[in-house]
Design a protein around this nucleic acid. Structure first.
Lengths: 137, 137
DNA sequence: GCTTGACCCTGTAGCAGCTACAGGGTGCAT
DNA sequence: ATGCACCCTGTAGCTGCTACAGGGTCAAGC
């Protein structure tokens, strides 16, 4: 299949596929006489794996390791679990960070009672860190 | 004050301050005879405002608008509230996205029962989207 | 007066993970 | 023969910094 078809089949942009090839995540396929990339089903499943992993938020580097594991059936599955667990921890950290941030934003925006920006509590709050309940980084 | 002092006072990196000046977020201060940037208290409070807004996750563009409002006391505070509310919505969207993602990761990593990567359920799941309960983008 | 070290300057390149051109070639239908 | 959809390479852009390289400045200590 040509790149456009692979793109449609995996719900990926054509330029993204070329990007994955450039960074060595997806192996370079054969070429047609006209120098078009011609993919086979193995590329398709590999790209599906990549896209699925990306949707789950794995980094490109994680995906490299995961693909490597998928290619070496004799290796220990624990490596894959390590990557997943570490990633899960990062996602949870992000969630709790964003949750604190949301609470602060709710508090800030709740202060707006309309009127002029000169006595806008939102602006006030941003200007003066002391108005915050919690530390946020 | 010199840039290093301002950096310490606002808990910002020196290079970040120069970056803000370069993109026009923080106005260029005066210079000493030796061409050092010399900041006054107004720069300091402006930078605090910026940093505080960044900590709350506002984009640089949002901050430009917020600073603009802070500079025009006669304008309507609703604009600031709009920006905050829209941002809050984005944060909430991110939280719910990450939460779905987390649930899926928990499910995926729960499938690992050790053993060889050849029958690793984590790898399996990544390879086959059909294993997923929910759609995730 | 000379060195050392902390600070400052400019300019540019890098990070992640794409995305978006520009400027060209190919392939098929009309 | 012409139009159009598709393909190619190469490069620059996005966000919000961060990290140099290669240089200048200044005060303290010997």
């Amino acid at each position: 299949m040509k790149i456009g078809e692979l793109a449609k089949a995996t719900d990926t942009q054509v330029e993204t596929i070329r990007y994955y090839e450039r960074i060595g995540l997806l192996s370079a396929p054969g070429r047609s006489a006209a120098n078009y990339r011609i993919y086979d089903p193995s590329h398709r499943s590999r790209l599906s794996f990549i896209r699925h992993s990306r949707q789950l938020g794995f980094t490109i580097d994680d995906i490299r390791s995961l693909l490597d594991l998928a290619d070496h059936p004799e290796r220990d599955c624990a490596e894959a679990d390590n990557i997943t667990t570490r990633h899960l921890g990062q996602v949870e950290a992000k969630i709790s960070h964003l949750t604190r941030l949301r609470d602060e934003l709710v508090r800030v925006s709740g202060r707006c009672r309309g009127g002029l920006s000169s006595d806008c509590q939102v602006i006030e709050t941003l200007a003066d860190h002391g108005h915050c309940t919690a530390k946020h980084e």
